[in-house]
Design a binder for these strands. Structure first.
Lengths: 221, 221
DNA sequence: ATGTCAAATAATATCGATATTTTTGGAGCA
DNA sequence: TGCTCCAAAAATATCGATATTATTTGACAT
């Protein structure tokens, strides 16, 4: 009755919208680790009711981006070197499993999808930053999603997001040293298109370990 | 003001209580897979307000025990042989990682904890069923929790719960063929106490694969 | 009979307000 | 000065009611 001023219906439910926006703010560090998340404050920020905010925070709790403290409300999940290293370990383990399964199921439509995602990612790397993050994730998930293992993909996606957060925190989001990430991605793609599981996983894991070491070195003890 | 008739304060918040009870009902099959979960109906069952019910359902969504459908409410997550097999696969992978890390960190207090949990489980196996389930999970999680990898433990716990559900569905909860589960547990325990990671993981995975095959054979295509 | 559409019904999503609990800020006392 | 305890303030958790959205029902036309 009141709103609907949006020129385009972009979000279905208020809850989902709040979820997406809060998630974004936590991933980018706009809401820093450990910060108390007061309902009223967020209600103002997102201008919506308390119920959608609460529900969004509940969902984020299960993504491990928000912690619920007894009866004392919510806070953005804290970070630590320990936590970062666990994320890296699990990603290497789970993504290897997923990538091998993906390659085992390889077919032409998957290869097409991969090539497309890779192309879009390259194109986006010339443009805006946030845009690139989305395309980067889409490429990495496309590598894995032919495994047809939804639980595994969900975990990979969650861990990817948790990791992204450390990138933003360590470097304001952009430093993300352009190293030779482009070449690394190309190697992974080529190996995947060749159905060479060993080479693809080796390159993928090297890719993670390398950025992992870089970020780890940036972190205080 | 009204309630607080409970002889003992057993649950802190209404939300948490609703979460636990709904989770239980889904795991045991009291709320069967695919069933529509109407707020009003649950509000009656748990006699609490709509907000705690909604929040509990949100949390269960992220445990993958409940699905949220667009703007059409919630339903108990469906089951399938495929889903079961994925759970089995991931459990074998993740629990091996966790168990090896646990053993690598082995110390006396962990060994004591293990022995205790194992003892309690054996004792509970003579008594009530639901009691045993809790003790069984506690033993299995104790095997893993010395890994000190909280994310990994969380995933293992989630997958354990998803699996328990198939046990209840396949066999009304008790058939759980007493096979030689006791001996299997003993072998795992002994290997862990010996710090023999290879033997422990082999026994653990065999344990899962064996019950997995049994349950798989029980399922319709 | 059958398919379509509109009104009625039911269920969800959201809001505003209240009750409970935690935290804060002193006032009184050792 | 430092500590305990109590009152005031703030924040959370929960409730009841409303608006919104899906589903069903039944009348009408084909």
């Amino acid at each position: 009755m009141d709103a609907m001023l949006d020129t385009e219906g972009k979000e279905t439910s208020a809850t989902h919208g709040a979820y997406r926006r809060l998630r974004d703010m936590i991933l980018t560090g706009e809401l820093p680790p450990g910060q108390k998340l007061k309902i009223e404050q967020l209600r103002g920020l997102l201008d919506t009711g308390a119920s959608p905010v609460r529900e969004a925070l509940s969902l984020l709790t299960s993504d491990m981006l928000v912690e619920r403290i007894d009866q004392r409300g919510f806070r953005a999940a804290p970070v630590s070197k320990c936590n970062f290293e666990e994320i890296l370990l699990l990603r290497c383990n789970l993504e290897e499993t997923a990538l091998r399964a993906s390659i085992a199921n390889a077919d032409a439509t998957w290869e097409d999808r991969l090539v497309l995602r890779h192309h879009h990612m390259k194109k986006a790397s010339h443009n805006g930053a946030h845009n690139f993050e989305d395309a980067h994730k889409a490429f990495h998930m496309a590598l894995l999603d032919n495994s047809k293992l939804p639980l595994l993909l969900r975990y990979c996606s969650q861990l990817y997001d948790l990791n992204i957060r450390y990138r933003y925190l360590a470097a304001g989001g952009s430093s993300y040293k352009k190293r030779d990430i482009t070449a690394e991605h190309q190697q992974i793609l080529d190996a995947a298109l060749d159905h060479d599981a060993d080479s693809a996983t080796r390159h993928l894991i090297d890719h993670y370990r390398r950025t992992g070491e870089y970020l780890s070195s940036q972190m205080e003890t």
